[in-house]
Nucleic acid binder design. Structure first.
Lengths: 205, 205
DNA sequence: GTCTATATTTGGATAGAC
DNA sequence: GTCTATCCAAATATAGAC
């Protein structure tokens, strides 16, 4: 007798249906907006009735949560494997990757980085994934002698600002994304100027 | 006989009720989220029933539109009267004002600058107000010899990035807003370095 | 696991009396 | 202008048969 390890076909099928549901959810959100997702439409798109979805997810927010986790995982999985070791090259690569990721899917950007779905908060597990992604960036900075939190904060502000402007004002275009190299140069020169550590806050008017 | 010009008390009352409705709408949105506004709650908050709102606004989106117009008008009206004429001082003032405006009311920021309400588009009239505000910034830049669109785009990206990060990750705090002066310095030095006009796009990977 | 049927809630919006 | 009453549509979610 063959002693093949049990492929649990039931579990496999279940998992693939879950994947199918999430794929359909991304498509619907891309078409109608993140907030307009409805379980009826979602079920219909894959040939099910709405109540059947509850065999796979506990609630609508559980679907959003799974999408959130997927998005964070993609941010981790698709990150560049080779980051140039020089500061400018590295900053360019990281900022460029992040901006491209954000504009590649505006709905995903909205779900992960803008919190605009009323009543949705990512679960602890999903949030942990996003924290891992954040920490990798922070570690890269620290590995290059940049361990000041406000330096990283300025970096993320520039990256997410370019992405936000692109997605809000010209989704699909490149009016802002093409500024990435220029912005990276600006940022690197600034932190190399050496006067960044300003502990005082902004001057009052 | 006194010949007092007609104060149209009816029109005054109507206008003041409209104002009251909009004030209540801002409060509800601040409490429950922009997308969660409901006409029932809104009417109840000012002692009316939902159908009465239709004497003042044609639809729910008309209320969003009036809020949008109000927000844009505030951006215009509250702008700093005295902008320092030197480049760094001016950039600091404009960026600081914009960021403060955005974080002062995250819901207003969401309505004006992130388009996340399904089905809502500002009317032509409302949009014109926002365009006026944009043009004033553009004109100030042009008046200081900065007429390249990508310079203005980089500026708006930095400002809205700081605001977006602050509102998304630490609403009400100052972790990002305190970076404004530093960011303004970074930006001004960069555009003064003179190598900004790069017509080529980002280098491909 | 999937379905039908339905509960339940909640929206926006309209009709018509006052 | 405001109300009551209602319409209509849509949503999430549950119960229970198969």
């Amino acid at each position: 007798m063959l002693d093949i390890p049990n492929r649990d076909r039931r579990a496999e099928r279940r998992s693939s249906t879950r994947t199918e549901i999430l794929e359909a959810a991304w498509e619907l959100c891309a078409a109608n907006g993140l907030a307009s997702l409805s379980l009826r439409d979602l079920a219909q798109r894959i040939g099910l009735k709405a109540p059947s979805l509850y065999s796979y997810f506990d609630s609508k927010n559980a679907i959003y949560d799974a999408m959130f986790a997927q998005g964070c995982q993609q941010l981790l999985d698709e990150r560049p494997r080779e980051i140039p070791d020089d500061l400018l090259g590295g900053i360019r690569a990281i900022m460029g990757y992040f901006v491209d990721f954000c504009v590649a899917d505006p709905v995903r950007y909205q779900l992960l980085f803008q919190r605009t779905i009323p009543g949705f908060e990512p679960s602890a597990d999903s949030y942990a994934i996003s924290q891992t992604a954040m920490r990798l960036t922070f570690d890269w900075f620290a590995g290059h002698g940049l361990d000041r939190p406000d330096v990283v904060d300025l970096f993320t502000a520039i990256g997410s600002g370019i992405a936000a402007q692109q997605n809000s004002n010209e989704p699909g275009g490149d009016r802002w994304t093409k500024l990435v190299d220029d912005a990276a140069l600006m940022f690197v020169r600034h932190i190399q100027a050496g006067d960044v550590p300003t502990d005082k806050g902004r001057s009052q008017t």
